[in-house]
Amino acid sequence: MKLIYILAALPFIGILFGIQFANKVTPIIFGMPFILAYIVMWVLLTSVIMAIVYRLDPTNKDGDTE
């Protein structure tokens, strides 16, 4: 149970606090300014993280009754 909360907290840390280390235009990565590429990376990671959370979360195992 605890693990899913830690996982879900990661994008908050990455976006709210990590951004100060990523605030620059160069190097341009995949055609995007560095800061934008950094945010996009977190968006992709969020989707992956939420998929893992969905799998781990016991609430989703018991059918569609909820």
């Binding site: 994008p11 908050f12 976006i15 709210l16 945010i39 977190w42 969020t46 939420m50």
Partner: peptide, 8 residues
């Protein structure tokens, strides 16, 4: 950024 956190 904000949409991402809101979805979590």
């Amino acid at each position: 950024g904000y949409g991402c956190l809101a979805y979590i």
